[in-house]
Design a protein around this nucleic acid. Sequence first.
DNA 1: TTTCAACACTCAAACGTTTGCGCAAAATAC
DNA 2: GTATTTTGCGCAAACGTTTGAGTGTTGAAA
Lengths: 340, 340
Amino acid sequence: MRPKLTLKQIARELDVSISTVSKALRDSSEIGEETRKKIKAFAKLYNYRPNNIALSLKNRKTKTIGIIIPEIVHYFFTTVISGVEQVANEKGYNVIVCLSNNSFDKEVLNLELLANGSTDGFILSLAKETMQKEDYHHLIEVINQGMPVVLFDRVVDEIHCDKVIIDDVIGAKKAVQHLIDKGARKIGLVSTVDYVSVGKLRTRGYLNILRDNNFEVDQDLILKIEDMDNSEAKIKEFINNNELDAVFAVNEHFAIHAIKAIQEKGLKVPEDVSVIGFTDGELSKRFIPSLTTVSQHGERMGAEAARLLIDKLERKPEDEDSYKTVIVETSLVERNSTKS
Amino acid sequence: MRPKLTLKQIARELDVSISTVSKALRDSSEIGEETRKKIKAFAKLYNYRPNNIALSLKNRKTKTIGIIIPEIVHYFFTTVISGVEQVANEKGYNVIVCLSNNSFDKEVLNLELLANGSTDGFILSLAKETMQKEDYHHLIEVINQGMPVVLFDRVVDEIHCDKVIIDDVIGAKKAVQHLIDKGARKIGLVSTVDYVSVGKLRTRGYLNILRDNNFEVDQDLILKIEDMDNSEAKIKEFINNNELDAVFAVNEHFAIHAIKAIQEKGLKVPEDVSVIGFTDGELSKRFIPSLTTVSQHGERMGAEAARLLIDKLERKPEDEDSYKTVIVETSLVERNSTKS
DNA sequence: TTTCAACACTCAAACGTTTGCGCAAAATAC
DNA sequence: GTATTTTGCGCAAACGTTTGAGTGTTGAAA
């Protein structure tokens, strides 16, 4: 077990100075042909690699970007990570992933950790708890210190920075319009409570498109789920108490629970009731019937976020610094839970 | 936008030396009461946080562990990350996640990156391509340089280090025995090609338990899938060409394709044919019928791996260094794809 | 009055790099 | 043979931190 080689060791071994070694390895013309060759040969033989930490300290940048997500066991977020990773690697950046587990405290902790030199900037989706508390000072503090931040998916207006979001309203409209086009008249909505911004926006899309089509809005056809744990029961009750011919659910899980409930009620999907979900995951593809969904293209979102961040990192200090908001378009993926 | 505060700046501002500031903040008794208070107050006011990079360089450790996984859009791996993260955070470690995307070259790249000072050690599951090539010199090199490594799930004997695996053979036996107990006689196996170690081991479990029960092994009842892309078609063909009363699949996807094929053939699950999968994910829980599976407890594996790694990191140099292999037990989760 | 310890603080080295500058010797010019 | 340039290399500072050793002042014991 030989320990890691440093410039100092090479210098001692070859009886030259540290700077000579450094310069030789970087092909400086200051160093003579012969010495240079000798040093490079030695370095290659013993597989010298510069120490990243020392480089980071010297250069005052780490070539690392952080990403903090609310939960990793979640298809959408993994696709985002995947997108971030691809772009980052392409541009020579490293990715460090942290999980907030939807906890405010853990988000703060992670932020502190990443902000104290470990990363050059980061990409973040807010924890649920943070959005409830509406306490963003930790993020604002970090941004004020000059650390570039890109928010994605779960964003708020109070934080000024680059953002990547989807057109939740438009996505929802597309979905509901599709249901209407296929003949649906009584369309149920299964959403989340309003402090989850995506729930609010998708609900707005639903309402808007109903109005656009001169449909009446019936509040009884709208279910807002507070607690994920009893969502299954709530949805079942909702389905049983209403005569619907279509359901728009703001995520995969709700959609699947709806389908289950519909089938248990003795009705058929999509013959009797059509169902559309939001977020395109494994589940949507593999479920029987496979789910028609609004795909949010997580990978593209991650890629956009990474591009925004790296652009900011590599721009000259204050070259121009307005904050951009990139909207990644959703698309309707038609499968078997809606009439074709 | 005020930039990050350093010891030097505090020192200049308060007209003391850098070391005084450092010592005051660390409550050294060398520093007088009054000065100490003044410095701490100032640091608190301006929210001073020591620079991680500088600390890493000084201490020669980063308090960061790396984890390299073949693909992140995969439920099992995300649960492993989740487990690693929990234990790491508990012990004050940071986690940096890299993806090899099952590519040998990217695995090597990631390894180099993480090994050059960015992390104190890492946790890795081998890329498929690496296992095909059977080329492990990059890992062996890193281990020889004294970097602690823990391998999980996809491991090989050629690499000497700590390992966390599941009892694939036993898990498969449990599954097949369960099928036999429920009366199955013609049990099909849907597995992967043998260079994927888990495929090989689960196949072995299947074969062993058939022998233990004095069943004949019929090679026609064994399907080995090479290419994920055409797995659906292959499985359909397999199901159609054989009269089975049960199927054991080595992962969720294969299991679901099997169920689809069975249903399309006009048979019912579990009444006519029982199906058991391996790996317990979202899909298994939510599919209709929900899947009976062998759960591999990814979270527990991640936690174990992190514990092994951190133990090694915090042990005195060469306190004792044998390599351990931890086996995380699988358990059979009975749901609705098998007879009860 | 001298001696010495205690106190409160500063210096400087170290972690592993990079890089502008300086300096000697060799090579060229006059 | 002297003056100047070129060549080849080393010194030292810097990034931000920690820490043992050193220093100067004070106060008390001898």
